[in-house]
Write a protein that binds this DNA or RNA. Structure first.
Lengths: 203, 203
DNA sequence: TATTATATTGAACCATGGTTCAATTTGTCA
DNA sequence: TGACAAATTGAACCATGGTTCAATATAATA
């Protein structure tokens, strides 16, 4: 509060051990959140990272912040995958793959599943995720709608809802498959307009 | 442990105030569980019932037992409604109404929604519910399958999963309707076999 | 190597919420 | 109306789990 403590936005390079620990913590947190969901305990994460709890709080100020760091960390992969889906020749395939991917992700990462469902909890994290992924999902959906394959009334927010059933439970691959099958079938526009072959489909 | 404490299965009639309180508690518990879900606090229930916490534990030994009492309490209505659905002329209507009813119930009663989803938690309550409702749901489904309207691969356990998205969130009636629409559409068998009119449909 | 800012430690703190139980009140019945 | 079992009370107990912080250790730099 005295001297000339004008911190130029970037301080000093973090210490080597600190950098290592940060990585270890993120890995451990990811693992524990995946298995235990949002209920994962800070002590457990610390133990798995080979570090004391205090260190978690030194790096990330709070449990929620740690969670957010983990989530944001994995966000790029997700975004990249969705970007790729936009390049799919068949728009409907994009929708299929999108749901399949989210489903798989939910099965492997409990916290992920719990996050995309809940609305008001953990404002920050949820917001960050939705901000980042929402527009991409929207494009995927719109493309499939424009091609007449996806119900016109579906909106981005429907996707997490429809996938909620896959969270927090153990289910056989068969059950999971059937679930996706049903939802996808429900999302798809029913009768492809009886198009007597020979005429252009849309106009 | 001494004297002749052979309790003939029925003891003595419960006291009048106790009977009143039991009712008040059940009502309060129902209300709080509906609003706060399984996280409803015993103190809050007691307060709402105009009673001390200890009384809750006198009547029901534990929070889980209280929850179960509340659930079992409402089970008859549910069972009765489902029974009625079996009398529906059109089997598919039975499925529609079943989902609609469960959905509505989930929207109005948070604990209900949380219960039908979770698998290993609260073994007793969950078991009781499923024991009682499972067979009925199964009949409704089988009837619709026999009539060729419902996907043949659907099993009882799929229904809670498919409805999970409606739990723990606030959603507009429109969204809820769309959700049900999608799921029901996904459950329904696609093309009614193109049956050139004049021939019997099934054989 | 001496110095110091940066990191780490983990026991202790605290809030939450289910549960207990000795003291007290109250319904019931002779 | 006594007398006693049944019922109620609510403060205290306890476990859980996130968070703090003074003491300590360590990497970086001169």
């Amino acid at each position: 509060m005295d001297h000339n403590e004008q911190r130029p936005p970037s301080q000093r390079a973090p210490r080597a051990d600190a950098r290592q620990n940060r990585i270890r913590i993120l890995a451990a947190a990811h693992a524990r959140f995946a298995v235990d969901g949002l209920a994962a305990e800070m002590d457990a994460i610390a133990r798995e990272a080979g570090v004391a709890v205090g260190t978690l709080y030194h790096h990330f100020g709070t449990k929620e912040a740690l969670l957010e760091a983990v989530v944001v960390d994995g966000l790029e992969h997700l975004a990249a995958y969705m970007q790729a889906l936009l390049a799919e020749p068949d728009p409907w395939t994009g929708v299929e793959r999108l749901l399949q991917y989210m489903a798989e992700r939910q099965m492997n990462d409990r916290a992920f599943g719990e996050l995309i469902g809940a609305q008001p909890t953990l404002r920050a994290t949820t917001t960050a995720t939705k901000r980042s992924l929402g527009p991409l999902i929207q494009q995927i959906l719109q493309r499939a709608q424009a091609s007449g394959q996806l119900r016109m009334d579906v909106v981005v927010g429907d996707i997490p809802l429809l996938l909620a059933g896959l969270s927090e439970r153990t289910m056989t691959p068969a059950t999971c498959q059937r679930y996706l099958d049903i939802v996808l079938s429900g999302l798809r526009v029913k009768q492809t307009p009886p198009a007597p072959s020979g005429l252009p489909l849309i106009w």
